[in-house]
Design a protein around this nucleic acid. Structure first.
Lengths: 342, 342
DNA sequence: ACCGTTTACTTTATCGGTTAAGTAAAAATA
DNA sequence: TATTTTTACTTAACCGATAAAGTAAACGGT
């Protein structure tokens, strides 16, 4: 059933026998209006339950105090935590968030961006899908001077601010740590090389191997997406090729969970038959069996910093030069990747 | 930096020397317009990168194809899954979702509802905070005929459609199952009794006890919130009172995780020193140590059904009578609550 | 050749606010 | 007292679309 007709400024104005501008100003506590009139207006507003129409206000103001958020997935610890933090930060700054989810689908992503532009959000906060390679739409956004900040999954070199974890260093360090624990044959279930995180995490992995004098084995490197299923498939791939490494470095925490699932299904055991470390973690990691040794990402801080940067950009008059903020990460020890006795 | 001035219908119209209504109709493929003109318009639109201003359109149409979502928390498996499903469903039906998060705070919740009304969403999808007792605002929404569907955490008796899990039955069955496994002293870390889920889950728990001839012990019943911290505090409470039951039924999965955390911190062991079952689960439950035996909730189905019901209500002309949909739940076996040998 | 219909537009009004530019009466200043 | 300033409003115009109503020219049938 349809909503009842909404009460407007004009309704209030008519009842009080004044112009609607008077009512509008009264509600915004404008100095033009006498306090008696302000009171009369407020009383009637309360009585009638008037709710201002933000759409009309936005149309006239040409601003919406609304930010468009585009993410690939919700039900993924990193994003859930980042989103939560973005929402909290937005509320403090009095911005509304309109979140859209691409489901790792480039078409959805583009549709969402267009839709958010049509809604005239004041700015965009984007973490791209794992398949995003076409940068045309972002170049277009740049041309139109749309305030935009990328976070976590970013596209560099287009002049937008980016906030990421220190993907290369974190990956380097976790693999180096694994090597120190005595592992030599270390595989990587990685992300696509066209994504910054897939590429950087793979580079960190390779750097650690090379530095330790281990020749990277292409058969130990599988690239795919970032989900549980990708981890599952990646592991099955190793297994079916009878080419199990001693240790697998998973590009994301969900990928590690996918490995867990495959291992369980095959009746194997972690860490007896195969060991795992991962980039990213989850609050419930400590209760996993075994809990994963991995790289802790400051998801909440990344979300907060990204939004704050965007708001600065929106509220500044001057353009801001391209900044790339890299958040430090640290290794968090769990029950995997324990020292290997010779 | 500010966005560049946006291109409007009027700009296009001027360049083509036609009225803006012509352009508007051309873009909507109206039969009034010749195909040559449609082509000319489309070409110029593409060239200039015109994006229609949905705000203006919505103002005129008095509809927004937008739904307001109010939830207490994001980073909680049930909600993350429900949200994901709501977003997917919305996209299929061509609705936009504006999600707000109350953080279990009643003031935020009310502020969000008002803000969504001001944005003139076509309807509201709400799961209330754990502290919501004042129903005034909802009565007001009813008076204004705002389409509204409650899900999971609902307020009954106000004439709104509600979708919940079968909280009472699920709780009854999991506790009955625990009794069958030989547990007698079963505690409950429950939710506030003013919430439907807190109340129903507690009632199911009590019914199972009574049916088995076990007198419920008030000292074994702790009520609080639904978060990890509440579970932690609840367990510490039992522990400090030197009143540990054999088994605890946790009102939510996060509460169970809180118990895990407390148990770990105290150097105890599940299920040796204390056993746990819970209402609700998580996709990663199978990898927990030990994985929890609990009641599986169809979070995605609940989200989908709630949104579909709401859309029906929005698009129907006639009011819909209050419906209460209760989704069946089932027990999912894990490594807790294994048969107790006498 | 006349008249009705169709085609392809244009003009006007409206959605519900806001800002800018009046204006009449009261108050302050010279 | 005359003039300026302030107070407390009102009127007009605009934000960018849409719906409804109006219109000139071309077309079609008899």
């Amino acid at each position: 059933m349809k909503s009842k007709k909404q009460i407007t400024l004009a309704d209030i104005a008519k009842k009080l026998n004044v112009s609607k501008v008077t009512v509008s100003k009264a509600l915004r506590n404008h100095s033009d209006i006498s306090s008696e009139m302000k009171k009369k207006v407020q009383d009637l507003v309360d009585e009638l339950g008037y709710t201002p129409n933000i759409i009309a206000r936005n149309l006239s103001a040409k601003k919406t105090r609304t930010i468009g958020l585009v993410i690939p997935k919700i039900n993924h610890h990193f994003f859930a935590e980042a989103i939560e933090s973005i929402y909290t930060t937005a509320q403090k700054s009095n911005y509304e968030i309109i979140m859209t989810v691409s489901q790792e689908n480039v078409d959805h992503e583009q549709k969402h961006i267009r839709s958010l532009l049509a809604m005239r959000v004041d700015g965009l906060l984007i973490s791209v899908s794992e398949n995003t390679t076409d940068t045309e739409i972002f170049k277009d956004l740049k041309k139109r001077h749309v305030p935009l900040v990328f976070f976590d999954r970013v596209i560099e070199g287009l002049g937008f601010n980016c906030i990421t974890s220190d993907d290369e260093k974190g990956s380097y360090e976790i693999v180096k740590y694994a090597i120190e624990q005595g592992y030599r044959k270390i595989g990587h279930i990685g992300g696509y090389n066209n994504t910054n995180i897939g590429k950087a995490r793979c580079e960190g992995y390779l750097r650690a191997l090379k530095e330790a004098g281990i020749e990277p084995d292409p058969a130990c490197l599988i690239c795919g997406g970032f989900s549980v299923n990708d981890g599952y498939r990646g592991f099955m791939n190793f297994y079916n090729n009878k080419n199990l490494p001693q240790m697998i470095f998973a590009v994301t925490f969900p990928v590690a969970l996918g490995i867990y699932r495959a291992v369980e299904e095959l009746g194997l055991n972690i860490p007896r038959d195969i060991d795992v470390v991962s980039f990213g973690d989850a609050s419930y990691n400590q209760f996993l069996n075994p809990s994963i040794t991995g790289v802790h990402q400051p998801a909440a801080e990344i979300g907060k910093a990204a939004l704050e940067l965007l708001i600065d950009q929106i509220e500044e008059k001057e353009p801001i030069e391209e900044k790339k903020i890299v958040m430090p990460v640290k290794i968090s020890l769990g029950q995997t990747c324990i020292k290997k006795e010779k």
